[in-house]
């Protein structure tokens, strides 16, 4: 491979991973935008989504691949979205008027509970989980989408998996933007995000809208977990921390609360990781990512696309 081919290959890998990170980051940024909560449990929700996806696969093993994929893309987001909504309903909703720290700590608690659920889930006596012998061990996710290179015999690989990532994520992001910009529910979300009290006075049920945001954000995490599981073919119960960290960094890098910012941030992080893996050293990649984050924040304190904060006096 020539230098340029290596570079191009890393760009493709970075792009695919970046899109997955962006999907998770969207969930962070939406929730933050509406109730200013860093939803620490989001990464672990993503992890639970991966386990749900693997369970779905194991239960539908005999069906044709396209049907399994369809089921995955419907059931996992529904599961994740529903779980996220439920957590909001049970934990965060009671803390709307408390200080900012209370829901945050609550979210950390939820993330611990999710982590533990993931461990137990891996211990289920199913074949895909190794009959529950080693709950904490990484699990193989079956190769439903082939690894074939779409560019023929070229040295640069653009596989079916990469295509799958793009085919699923790009329309989803476009759809999300249209949803938030055009629909009634989307407008209600933006209204609540700007001024909850005023939105309530205009007759919007803020709790309902916030619940919808959690549902939507969780759903996106569910899609991300399906895509990530298909792309990486391995899942483990501690994967949520790393994924959540990357996505959170992406959301902040792009400007937390901004949807295009989350996507841009996700792509930046994905590319930075891939390039750092190739040209610096894999073991320094995490350090590089955060160094970039700190550097960007020094020059742009509200992130790349974040709105400048001005306090009312």
């Amino acid at each position: 491979m020539t230098g340029w081919e290596v570079f191009l290959q890393q760009l493709i890998i970075g792009l695919s991973n970046g899109m997955i990170i962006a999907l998770i980051a969207l969930g962070y940024t939406m929730v933050y935008g509406i109730i200013e909560l860093i939803n620490f449990a989001h990464g672990d929700l993503f992890m639970l989504g991966c386990f749900a996806a693997l369970t779905v696969v194991s239960l539908t093993g005999d069906l044709p691949v396209w049907l399994v994929l369809l089921l995955l893309l419907v059931l996992t987001p529904v599961f994740c979205g529903g779980l996220n909504w439920l957590v909001d309903r049970l934990a965060y909703r009671h803390l709307r008027d408390a200080t900012k720290l209370a829901p945050l700590v609550s979210a950390i608690g939820v993330s611990f509970v999710f982590l533990n659920l993931g461990l137990f889930w891996g211990g289920l006596p199913l074949k895909v989980f190794g009959f529950g012998k080693a709950a904490a061990a990484p699990k193989d996710f079956p190769t439903l989408v082939s690894n074939a290179n779409l560019l023929g015999n070229s040295n640069v690989e653009f596989t079916t998996k990469d295509l799958l990532v793009l085919v699923i994520t790009v329309p989803l992001m476009v759809g999300l933007t249209l949803f938030v910009k055009q629909t009634r529910a989307g407008k209600a979300m933006r209204a609540v995000a700007q001024d909850r009290l005023a939105a309530q006075l205009m007759g919007i049920d803020a709790n309902r809208v916030i619940g919808q945001t959690f549902l939507l954000g969780g759903g996106l995490a569910g899609v991300a977990s399906v895509v990530a599981a298909l792309y990486n073919n391995t899942i483990y119960f501690q994967m949520g921390y790393r994924a959540g960290m990357d996505a959170f960094t992406a959301a902040v890098l792009g400007g937390i609360g901004s949807l295009p910012g989350a996507v841009l941030g996700g792509l930046c992080i994905g590319l930075a990781r891939a390039l750092s893996d190739q040209y610096i050293a894999t073991r320094w990649t995490n350090v590089m990512v955060f160094a970039i984050l700190i550097l960007v924040l020094v020059f742009r304190p509200s992130g790349l696309l974040g709105a400048k904060h001005r306090e009312k006096v």
């Binding site: 934990a91 700590v105 608690g109």
Partner: peptide
């Protein structure tokens, strides 16, 4: 069996304690 060792319930208990604490005595 992963479920019977109390050590494996650590995060669950810790997490629930945090959630309940925030709910009732923030």
């Amino acid at each position: 069996n992963v479920y019977t060792a109390p050590g494996n319930w650590k995060y669950m208990l810790f997490g629930l304690a945090l959630i309940l604490m925030m709910r009732f005595k923030p």
